[in-house]
Design a protein around this nucleic acid. Structure first.
Lengths: 152, 152
DNA sequence: TATTGTTATACTCTATAACTATA
DNA sequence: TATAGTTATAGAGTATAACAATA
C-alpha cells in the first residue's frame, strides 16, 4: 500500500506537539485564555487588565507612586501617565503630594474607586474559579506556585 | 506608640499579594519572563516568537495552509500574510499549490528553512531548561500539564 | 453561499528620547 | 549626578472591512 509523496498530501490535523512542549508557548496561551474571559467580565466596570492591576495596587497600597506601580507591574513610566490621567478623570483615584519627596505624587483611591474595586475584585476572584474549573483546588494552588517560580 | 495617619506615610514595600492570587496575572508574568529570554537567544536566527512558531509548525506539518496556521496559533489571517511573505523572501519557506484546493497554498520549508530550524529548535529547548531551572523535572512536567488544562 | 488569501486601515500596546522639577 | 513625572513620537502587535478566486 504505497502512499503518495508527503509533499502532495494535504495536512489533515496540525501537529502542535513540539510547541506544546515549550513553557513560553503554554504560559502565553493560558494567559490569553484567562485574559479573554477577564475582558468580558470586567467590561461593565470599564477596566482593562492593566487598569484593574493599577487600581488594585493603589487600593492595597494607598500612597503608592507611579514609579512603584511601574516597577511592580513591568510598565514603562510614559505608558502609565495616560492610564493614571484617565483613572483620575473618572474620579477613581486622587493625586496627592508625596509626604517626603516633592518630585513624586502619592496615588490614593477615591471613595468611588474603593467602591468600584470592592465590586470588581470579587468578580475577578469569581472568574478565577471559572478559569480553573478543570483543575482540582490543590492543582490550582500548585499551578500558581510553580508559575511564580518561573518569573520571580 | 501612635502612628501617623496612613495617608501621610510613603509606601515602603508594595503589596502585590492579591494580584499574585490571580491565574491570569501569574500566567502573563511567567510568559513574559520566558519570552524575554527567548528574544535574546533567538535573535541570532532572526526569529521572533511568532516566526519561530510559524516555522516550527511548517517544518512539522509540511503543506500546512495559512488558515490552519492561524487556527493553530490564534492569529488573524491578515496579520499572517506579512510574516509568510518575509519568511518566503528570506528563502526559508516555499508557497506551493495546494493538492486539493486551488484557493489555498501549501506552505513547505526550504532546505535552508529546515537547516535553520534544526538549529533553532534545540536552542529553544535549551532555553526551556534555563527558564525552568528553579523547578524539578517533575514540577516542569506538572506545570506544562496544568497550563494546557487552562487553555485547551 | 461560504471559504482562502489578500489589501488597506485603524486601533492598541510597547518602546525610546528628551524635558522639568526635585533629590 | 540621579530620579519622578511628563511629553512627544515611533514601532510592534492586534483588529475589522472588503475584495478576487475558488469551493
Amino acid at each position: 500500500m504505497a502512499r503518495p509523496p508527503a509533499a502532495q498530501l494535504a495536512v489533515q490535523t496540525v501537529d502542535t506537539s513540539y510547541l506544546e512542549s515549550l513553557m513560553g508557548y503554554n504560559a502565553r496561551r493560558a494567559a490569553l485564555a484567562v485574559i479573554e474571559h477577564f475582558l468580558v467580565v470586567m467590561a461593565p466596570y470599564g477596566l482593562r487588565p492593566v487598569d484593574f492591576s493599577v487600581m488594585s495596587l493603589i487600593v492595597h497600597n494607598p500612597g503608592i507612586t507611579s514609579r512603584q506601580l511601574c516597577a511592580a507591574l513591568g510598565l514603562l513610566p510614559p505608558n502609565l501617565v495616560g492610564m493614571v490621567n484617565t483613572l483620575q478623570k473618572r474620579g477613581l483615584i486622587e493625586r496627592r503630594p508625596h509626604p517626603s519627596d516633592r518630585r513624586a505624587l502619592a496615588l490614593h483611591p477615591s471613595e468611588g474607586g474603593l467602591a468600584l474595586m470592592r465590586a470588581a475584585e470579587p468578580t475577578a476572584t469569581q472568574l478565577e474559579r471559572r478559569a480553573t474549573a478543570k483543575l482540582k483546588a490543590a492543582e490550582t494552588k500548585t499551578l500558581l506556585r510553580l508559575l511564580r517560580k518561573i518569573y520571580l
